[in-house]
Design a protein around this nucleic acid. Structure first.
Length: 572
DNA sequence: CTTAGGG
DNA sequence: CCCTAAG
């Protein structure tokens, strides 16, 4: 409907139905603001401009918007009789106001357009509305000054300049308004410490200054023609729009994509406003064109832009929720955190990335991760996720249970438990968070199977063994097998070594039997077998060394091993 | 992805 | 069990 045309085009635009003056004026302003830099130089103390105070680009964008809004509202409020305030926010309202004519004064921000329209529309307003005209003008002026401030802010951010601007049009500004503006400015921008793109001022200030000049011109115009005529209003509006648009441009350059997106938002809003306006009068539409152009004048309308929360952010928050819902695990968050922290002190918690979320910059409406509740860190390597997902159920049963460490023996592995764990695990692993897999102690049967598997497939062929013998045991991964084998190897080594200290025969066997019952102590027979297998299939390195140590022992008990081996493996 | 190895 | 490196 209303396509925004670059304002150069506007100059040529045939679109000015209303009064001839307007086009002229518009052209005037649009094409070339009178005495830009000279004027600017005169107005601003360039020296005062401090490069150090250059802005944080991001801040600029945000502050910019905010300021505008704030300024508009505050200024208007102060300036205008009560009841007017309401209209400020939305163009639609403004348009209505325009149509009805009565309440138009109220709609400034939406802005000048509204005003202009209104003034155009209802001539009555000016006369009848008190100082409506006056007010409007004032408000406009205020508004402008506000924008001026912004300009200043953009350019130098130095208060002196601001003051200067205020003084510059004392007549136009209500002091109270000025104060408020000032305060608002301070509060908002708050930080004088600004960011610093040292290049920024150089590049952009001129531009801003130009705009500023334009503004000034418009202001002057207003001044001179205090009794605002429609054309004037429009011109003013245009100039302002112009200013906004042009001012935004330089900002965008240095700004990153974020700012751009924000501007887009603003643009959208602006369009809305324009539409509403357009409905009211053709003149307005014209104005709208000017404003709409490729540049975004939005800042006038748009509320403070809040950053879109990063995707990961959202995910995390969601995950957090899901976690909180997962109470069934009975895992206190605290304990979880503690364990996690213990386990992954380095990259899970200390990583600065998460700290970012605590940054103030996300104040806006974006989703925040609760500070007190550290999110689980995303797995550094995608590998983890993949493995858990890829191997199907293999790793899913991750449960973070502090008790797991202690009462291992009490946990009798059962498929039910596992499945339950799986659910839990999935929710957690979705994010790649690393939950420690629930400890499921190896049963003797499993050990035997493992040993059998090793004897069949050989050491190191863990995936194969898993496929053949542990396909049903989802909770045992090839890695687990490997680990277990290693443990068995060690156990065999140590246990047998210990054993050697005793007089060989039956005594120890009995002891082992007793232990076996208490804990899941691996039956010696199995250990023997393990050792034998270790000899046959030398386990990579350390096993070799171990085995080498052990081997003599094995050789020393050849009979027992051979005896125990066959029957036990099969029997157990 | 699979193994080997260190923790 | 976890994590990482290496192939």
């Amino acid at each position: 409907m209303f396509t925004c045309k670059p304002y150069e085009v506007d100059a040529d635009m045939p679109i000015f139905p209303a009064s001839e003056d307007e086009p002229v004026v518009l052209e005037h302003f649009l094409v070339e603001p009178p005495c830009k830099e000279d004027w600017v130089s005169g107005l601003l103390d360039l020296d005062a401009f401090q490069i150090e105070k250059s802005f944080n680009i991001e801040d600029i964008s945000s502050t910019f918007d905010y300021d505008q809004i704030k300024l508009d509202t505050d200024a208007v409020h102060t300036m205008l009789p009560k009841g007017e305030e309401k209209s400020l926010e939305f163009p639609s309202e403004a348009s209505q106001g325009i149509n009805f004519g009565g309440s138009e004064e109220n709609h400034f921000d939406t802005k000048h357009a509204d005003k202009a329209v209104k003034s155009d529309d209802g001539s009555c307003n000016k006369s009848s509305c008190l100082g409506n005209v006056g007010l409007e003008n004032q408000s406009q002026s205020v508004h402008k000054t506000g924008s001026d401030e912004e300009m200043v802010k953009l350019s130098s951010t130095s208060m002196p300049v601001l003051n200067y601007t205020y003084n510059h049009h004392p007549s136009l500004l209500d002091q109270a308004a000025a104060k408020e503006l000032d305060e608002a400015f301070k509060n908002i921008s708050g930080h004088e410490t600004l960011l610093i793109d040292k290049n920024w001022p150089n590049k952009n200030n001129l531009y801003g200054l130009e705009n500023y000049a334009q503004l000034e011109t418009s202001l002057n115009l207003m001044k001179f023609e205090e009794i605002s005529t429609e054309s004037e209003d429009k011109t003013i509006f245009l100039s302002i729009v112009d200013y906004c648009a042009s001012s935004t441009i330089p900002v965008t350059g240095p700004l990153n994509s974020e700012s751009i997106s924000g501007q887009q938002q603003m643009k959208r809003k602006r369009v809305d406003g324009c539409e509403s306006i357009k409905t009211s009068t053709s003149d307005v539409s014209k104005i709208e064109f000017c404003s709409d152009e490729g540049y975004r004048a939005e800042p006038l309308v748009s509320p403070k832009r809040s950053r879109k929360p990063p995707r990961r952010y959202i995910e995390e928050s969601l995950e957090y929720e899901s976690k909180s819902n997962n109470k069934k695990c009975g895992i206190g968050k605290r304990s979880k955190d503690r364990i996690l922290y213990d386990r992954y002190p380095k990259y899970k918690w200390q990583n600065a990335e998460h700290m970012v979320y605590e940054d103030d910059s996300f104040n806006g409406g974006c989703i925040q991760v609760p500070f007190g509740l550290p999110m689980e860190r995303e797995q550094p390597h995608p590998k983890k996720n993949k493995s858990s997902l890829g191997s199907g159920v293999s790793k899913e049963n991750r449960l973070l249970d502090p008790s797991e460490r202690f009462d291992v023996a009490l946990i009798v592995e059962s498929q039910e438990d596992i499945s339950e764990d799986e659910c839990v695990a999935r929710s957690f692993t979705a994010k790649g968070s690393t939950r420690r897999k629930r400890h499921i102690s190896w049963t003797t049967e499993e050990v035997v199977k493992l040993v059998d598997g090793v004897s069949q497939c050989g050491v190191g062929r863990w995936t194969e063994i898993k496929r053949l013998l542990f396909s049903s045991a989802s909770h045992r991964t090839s890695v687990d097998l490997k680990d277990k084998w290693r443990n068995l190897l060690r156990a065999s080594c140590t246990q047998l070594q210990i054993k050697e200290k005793f007089t060989y025969p039956s005594k120890l066997m009995q002891v082992d039997q007793g232990r076996k019952q208490a804990t899941n102590f691996v039956p010696e027979s199995i250990l023997w077998r393990v050792r034998e297998l270790a000899v046959i299939y030398p386990y990579p390195r350390d096993s070799r060394s171990k085995v080498s140590c052990i081997i003599p022992a094995v050789s020393s008990f050849p009979a027992s091993t051979s005896n125990a081996l066959v029957p036990l493996s099969t029997a157990v």
